[in-house]
Design a protein around this nucleic acid. Structure first.
Length: 493
DNA sequence: AAAAAAT
């Protein structure tokens, strides 16, 4: 009998003409369905598959993913109605169920009843596309989970995408960590943790552990929570010398803001050491808004056989953010300009970025002296204090947050409509840091809302840096005169 | 330079 031949109720029957006709009908219906679901590549999404021969498809609804009911309930509870652009493409590639359908040579019966028509000899993905249960007797198509490297702008639903992937694989009945997510900062770990908790709240037994600084466990204790979110240092300790987590039991590993996590200057050592402890068949998911070329190459080296999804350039983000610069001669003038802007920016909420912790704390103190209420957040503060500050900012009790690059990435506060670069972002060599610039101003204009970015320039050198940033994004940054009240009126409107 | 850290 040829491979993938039709097997009806009597397994050894010859293939009749009628059977073949039915096969063709099934195949053509299926092709139609697959085509209608194909990714629109003319749009801004670029998908590179691990297995280019398998059909590429996207989902237009969460229902098509055949999530567990508790999980779908969580998705709805969060107010998500339909997948975002990145989710349309990423979810089918990541989720456990949709890819485990019959393989072509599978000896089982690949027939399903669909709209009164018995479809047989179905190719892989068939049951996913048709929204039906996979044949119970089928072999699985490839036993390893699909790895993914995904790049898309901030505010496009990356977090929800990987949270869904983790929750769809977790087995709440097993009381040990199965999913591990790394974040670059304490604040982001807390924020992402909240999403996990909300989306997973309909799994009664599901628990989440925070592997972050200050979270201490008894010696010899084991983490019983099924999902762990944390920062690299603590997670590494928990996995290695403290042995709170058995890394060999991790099924899904997520690197959020993956470009910083694997960049040489970033948390590379720790992230890679953790990754090496994971089992070979662990699913690896890398998410970030930006991937600089060298980082991108490195990512593809670390992740075996990845699917790759890229959302086209960042223009879209920058379109909704109006960018200005203010010309000053020194730090004091920048401070004055910021004071002039204070009234306008506090209509909603604002984030003010400084290059160092020292400048940040100086600036916060000076603003307070002037009678302007501001909050300060930087890495030198105690974690408890940091948690309290970000909470107050989230609740809107603080209108202005003076901070460092600790908040440059991922922090999502909806009311933030202004980002001020008190110091322009530069790397350790003093060159413009375009990635960080994009991430910083990406704190505003989230989910299609409009935003405003104001850059403070205080020297020829910083003007030069700003010009290079402007060139890089090929987007005009206009001059703003903060002594001119009409001008300020204009931006505040 | 910032962040991560039971160093």
């Amino acid at each position: 009998m040829p491979m993938g031949a039709v097997v009806k109720s009597n397994a050894n029957a010859e293939k009749t003409e009628e059977d073949e006709k039915e096969d063709r009908a099934a195949q053509s219906l299926l092709n139609k369905l697959i085509r209608s679901n194909l990714v629109d590549n003319t749009n801004q999404v670029e998908v590179l598959q691990r297995d280019p021969s398998s059909p590429l498809y996207s989902v237009k609804s969460f229902e098509e993913l055949r999530l567990k009911p508790q999980l779908l309930q969580g998705v709805y509870a969060m107010g998500f109605n339909r997948p975002s652009k990145i989710q349309e493409n990423a979810l089918p590639l990541m989720l456990a169920e949709p890819i485990s359908v019959c393989s072509p040579g599978c000896p089982g019966t690949h027939s399903v009843d669909y709209a009164g028509l018995e479809l047989r000899n179905l190719p892989p993905y068939a049951s996913q596309v048709l929204g039906l249960k996979a044949c119970s007797t089928t072999a699985r198509l490839g036993s390893d989970p699909q790895n993914l490297i995904a790049q898309s702008q901030s505010g496009t639903g990356k977090t929800a995408a990987f949270v869904l992937a983790m929750l769809s694989q977790v087995e709440p009945a097993n009381n040990y960590p199965q999913c591990l997510c790394l974040s670059p900062t304490y604040e982001l770990a807390l924020q992402t943790g909240k999403v996990i908790e909300q989306m997973g709240k309909f799994y009664p037994e599901l628990k989440l552990a925070y592997a972050v600084r200050g979270n201490k466990l008894e010696r010899g204790q084991k983490v019983s929570e099924q999902i762990v979110i944390g920062t690299p240092g603590t997670v590494l300790d928990w996995c290695s010398k403290l042995k709170f987590i058995d890394p060999k039991k991790i099924k899904v590993f997520v690197l959020d803001e993956a470009d910083v996590m694997i960049a040489t200057q970033g948390h590379q050592d720790q992230s890679i050491r953790i990754q090496r402890m994971l089992p070979r068949n662990c699913q690896m998911l890398l998410f970030s808004a930006t991937f600089e070329d060298s980082v991108w190459k490195f990512a593809q080296k670390v992740v075996p056989d990845p699917n790759i999804i890229k959302l086209k350039r960042e223009e879209e983000t920058l379109d909704t953010i109006k960018q200005y610069y203010v010309l000053c001669n020194n730090r004091e003038e920048k401070f004055q300009a910021l004071c002039n802007l204070y009234g306008a920016i506090t209509i909603a909420q604002a984030m003010v970025f400084c290059h160092t912790r020292k400048t940040a704390s100086w600036l916060a103190a000076e603003l307070s002296k002037e009678g302007h209420q501001v909050a300060l957040l930087s890495g030198e503060m105690m974690v408890e204090q940091r948690a309290a500050v970000i909470e107050r900012f989230r609740e809107g009790k603080e209108k202005v947050l003076v901070t460092t690059n600790v908040c440059a990435r991922g922090i999502d506060v909806e009311q933030v409509s202004v980002v001020i670069n008190f110091d322009l972002p530069v790397d350790k060599d003093g060159n413009p840091d375009n990635e960080t610039y994009l991430h910083r101003i990406g704190r505003t204009g989230r989910f299609g809302k409009r935003g405003l970015a104001v850059n403070m320039v205080d020297s020829k050198h910083s003007m030069n840096i700003l010009n290079r940033i402007q060139e890089h994004f090929n987007k005009k940054i206009e001059r703003l005169d903060t002594d001119d009240l009409d001008e300020i009126e204009k931006i505040a409107n």
